[in-house]
């Protein structure tokens, strides 16, 4: 649990450089000091990162610009604009944005309630522990859980029908945009709670009291001080939640099969059986996913840099 939050903290914060290195004045000293032991220590990591993270990803980026014969082409990227693929991207972005924004908002509300809402202290640690578990409870079993809850035979559906309300006749369907979003919230909200709790702890009680003595209402405190102070953290978490939802496939696949054509499912089908009849188009699809998650992070970095003025 701590690991989740610390990993995310780093993604949401400036990278610390740790204690100063003790390299001598001579610039060649570093290389002279680079002993066999050092190389052995760092080599596995570098080789692994190249072979299993960087080169495979770059290979896809290059592949997106190659035709089957290996010549440069922009056709694959332009083919992303075909209605089927564009629709996939659109629904993926909608699900990811909605689940990230709702997850962040609800997660923030719950985190505020348990930290600043004067609830018994035991509740906080219970919620944090549960969040550690729930944030990892994703994929296939999560879809089973929601089928058992909100599926046609699910407990909630049955109970509501018993109470005289037919969920499915009212237009709800678990195998839909909203169904998927509600399901994704099950891991998005806990992730938000885990990441934002330390930031909320950083809001000093005196800021609220100072604002109150200056005439501010509770709402004005949050508008002018609380949220602006949390803002960089909120944005960082938002981009992480977005990436988290955008790349997720197992939950959606087990829940909806291929009835909800989000991008990862389309890509999955393409890898399985070349449904797009063009390997280069698959790579372009992957490129599109990389670009969108990268954009989300760049937006975050830009806004964060602007907030950096007052962040120590």
């Amino acid at each position: 649990m701590t690991n989740v939050s610390s990993a995310a903290d780093t993604s949401a914060g400036p990278v610390s450089t740790g204690p100063a290195v003790r390299v001598g004045g001579n610039p060649f000293r570093f290389f002279l000091r680079l002993r066999l032991g050092d190389i052995i220590a760092i080599a596995p990591f570098i080789i692994f990162a190249l072979l299993f993270l960087l080169i495979p990803t770059l290979g896809l980026v290059v592949g997106a610009f190659q035709d089957p014969q290996g010549n440069f082409t922009l056709q694959n990227v332009m083919d992303l604009a075909t209605p089927q693929i564009a629709a996939s991207f659109w629904i993926s972005i909608r699900v990811s944005v909605t689940s990230a924004v709702l997850g962040a908002a609800i997660g923030l509300a719950i985190a505020l309630a348990i930290i600043r809402g004067k609830l018994p202290s035991g509740i906080r640690s219970a919620v944090m522990t549960f969040s550690g578990v729930a944030s990892q409870f994703a994929g296939i079993p999560l879809s089973f859980a929601f089928l058992a809850t909100l599926g046609r035979l699910g407990l909630v559906t049955v109970l509501l029908k018993f109470a005289g309300f037919d969920l499915y006749k009212s237009g709800f369907n678990l195998l839909s945009f909203w169904g998927l979003t509600i399901t994704y919230l099950y891991f998005q909200i806990p992730l938000m709670i885990l990441i934002i709790a330390p930031a909320i702890d950083g809001l000093k009680k005196e800021w609220g009291e100072a604002a109150a003595t200056l005439g501010a209402t509770n709402g004005q405190f949050w508008r002018y001080i609380g949220l602006p102070v949390l803002w960089p953290n909120l944005l960082g978490t938002l981009s992480l939640l977005f990436a988290n939802a955008f790349g997720a496939i197992a939950t959606a696949y087990a829940l909806t099969g291929s009835s909800l054509n989000i991008v990862p499912i389309l890509l999955y089908a393409q890898i399985r059986g070349d449904v797009l009849h063009n390997p280069g188009l698959g790579a372009a699809l992957a490129l599109g996913m990389i670009v969108i998650t990268a954009l989300a992070n760049i937006v975050y970095l830009v806004i964060r840099t602007r907030a950096e003025r007052w962040l120590k």
Binding site: F45, L53, L54, P264
Partner: peptide, 30 residues
Amino acid sequence: RAPHLRPIIEFITLLPLVIPAIILVFGYIR
């Protein structure tokens, strides 16, 4: 021994949070 490499190493370690698993496996398959 090399704190100045930390930003690069940390960036690499965070990549899997940004690159979806399906992209990784697609890259592997190719």
